[in-house]
């Protein structure tokens, strides 16, 4: 029974992984660009939730919404202010740009909020739910459910809407998209906005059941890398499946081997994947 419990909570955590990983994979799919600051975007979402709850006494709808809106804007600003200028430059500049951003954001958080762990009051989503003998915390359940819905929503947005087909057109062939009257710059900015928003929402959701500290972004970013690599670069459904899988694997290894193994096992799987099928990882041909 316990093992089912562990798997269930792994799935819920995995849904949140899937959510912010889908943002990372979206950018990669469109521009062959990895945002090394993606974990820090999640972190900003967490601190937004913390601030809204602490100072405005806001409820979940308010803090998740605020995180979504602010990070959407932040993503667009980052695109126009930084990414657009480096994306065709030398590879070192591309990598350093978001890497530097990650450091800057992480240690700004450190400077402002200090290193201590912050948590949201557990009255936001109180209680646990008993589903056939499996007990799941309400915050996890809400976070996992909402994350799942939003991830599917992003998938539908890409597949079913005009803006989605325009985004995909730019990622398929920039030149051709331009000839069709689509402005790639604008679409890429929207993609960055969306990507950052997924991170922000995920952060706000995670904050309801996880501690907030400046360094959590780092391990979340690594988790997202692994999810994206397993799910196939650029694939949102892939990120969803891989996110759930990684969530379960983490929970199981923490339960069966001990807490310290939860990351070790996942990273080791990633390194093994590099070994076995490094080229097979790509969602599309390099």
């Amino acid at each position: 029974m316990t093992i089912i419990q562990v798997i269930a909570s792994g799935l819920l955590l995995g849904a949140v992984y899937a959510l912010f990983s889908s943002g990372l994979t979206l950018i990669w799919g469109m521009m062959n660009f990895i945002n090394f600051a993606h974990g820090e975007f999640v972190l900003i979402g967490m601190y937004i939730a913390f601030l809204v709850v602490t100072y405005l006494n806001g409820g979940p709808l308010l803090f998740v919404g605020t995180a979504a809106v602010l990070l959407f804007g932040f993503g667009i600003v980052i695109y126009y202010g930084l990414i657009r200028h480096v994306m065709r430059g030398p590879i070192l500049a591309q990598i350093l740009s978001t890497f530097g951003l990650a450091l800057l954001l992480r240690y700004l958080a450190f400077f402002i909020f200090k290193a201590d762990f912050k948590t949201l009051p557990d009255t936001i989503f109180p209680g646990t739910v008993n589903i056939g003998g499996i007990f799941l915390g309400m915050p996890q359940l809400v976070a996992g459910g909402v994350a799942l819905v939003i991830t599917l929503g992003i998938h539908l947005l890409l597949k079913r809407t005009t803006i989605g087909s325009q985004l995909l057109a730019v990622s398929e062939d920039r030149q051709a998209a331009m000839l069709m009257g689509i402005r790639p710059d604008r679409m890429q900015a929207i993609a960055w906005g969306l990507s950052a928003a997924t991170a922000g929402v995920a952060g706000a959701l995670i904050a309801t059941f996880y501690y907030i500290s400046p360094t959590v972004g780092e391990s979340l970013a690594l988790t997202a890398f692994v999810v994206v690599a397993f799910g196939g670069f650029g694939s949102v459904p892939g990120a969803l499946v891989a996110g759930l899988l990684i969530g379960v694997i983490q929970s199981l290894s923490a339960y069966l081997l001990g807490p310290i193994y939860k990351d070790i096992v996942v990273y080791a799987m990633f390194v093994a994947l590099l070994w076995i099928r490094p080229t097979g990882l790509f969602g599309k041909a390099a």
Binding site: L82, H85, V86, G89, P90, L92, A93, Q94, L96, S97, F99, G100, L101, A102, L103, L104, L105, R106, Y107, L108, F110, F111
Partner: peptide, 21 residues
């Protein structure tokens, strides 16, 4: 050390943006 890495981060971003060489 927090401040150090804020400065590091700032320098890296500025380098990437303006003087990648």
């Amino acid at each position: 050390s927090g401040l150090t890495y804020i400065i590091y981060g700032g320098i890296i971003v500025l380098l990437a943006r303006y003087e990648p060489g």
